[in-house]
Amino acid sequence: MAAYPAWNEAQAQAIIDELASLEGAMLPILHALQEAFGCVEPQAVPLIAEALNVSRADVHGTISFYHDFRSAPPPQRVVKLCRAEACQALGCETLVGDLARDHGIVVDAHGPHDRAAVETVYCLGNCALGPSALVDGELLGRVDADRIASLCGAQA
């Protein structure tokens, strides 16, 4: 995963100004800021609110509603683990328990991460080969706790 530049208010304001006139501009702005900085910094919330003439609570609510938006920089690696029905039927919930018990990896733990994080997603379209995960754009099937832990750089 690429390193992201530090927060820059002038650059953020330029992104916001460029997209503010779009219909339904909030999501494109949030996506663009996250693409530029790796997250939607809390300092961006009042800038977006002012540009779109909405409350800060509206902006914060949108950020917190969508699981893909981050308010802190991402770890070096994000493993997206499918927990939809098909993967549940093929053992993903057991895998989640094994990750915590055997490797100390808590799925969807929020906070500062250095190396890796495992996040829940619902359906990667690889249902027949579940449990499935998406890592660095690569779709993996029939993953187990040891494989996820190794992808996260954890020791067994």
Results as ranks from 00 to 15, higher is better:
V79L: 05
A25Q: 05
D144K: 03
I148S: 02
P75K: 02
S150W: 09
D144I: 06
I105R: 02
R83Q: 15
P28Y: 06
Q155W: 09
H60Y: 05
V59A: 08
K80I: 01
I15T: 08
A145S: 07
H113Q: 07
N126T: 04
C127F: 06
S132Y: 06
A116P: 02
D17E: 11
G104Q: 04
V106R: 15
D68T: 11
H31T: 07
H67E: 07
V106E: 15
L52D: 04
R147K: 14
A49N: 02
L140W: 05
R83I: 05
C87D: 12
Y66M: 04
E23F: 10
D17P: 01
E41V: 11
R77S: 01
Y122S: 00
C127V: 01
Q11L: 10
A154K: 14
E41W: 13
M1G: 11
V106M: 04
G125N: 07
Q76N: 04
V54W: 07
L134R: 10
V78D: 11
E50Q: 10
Q13R: 14
G61Q: 08
D136C: 08
L19R: 00
L52I: 12
F65N: 08
S150I: 14
A154W: 05
H113L: 12
A100M: 08
G104I: 02
V118T: 03
P73D: 05
T62V: 15
L139M: 11
E35D: 12
P74I: 09
P28H: 03
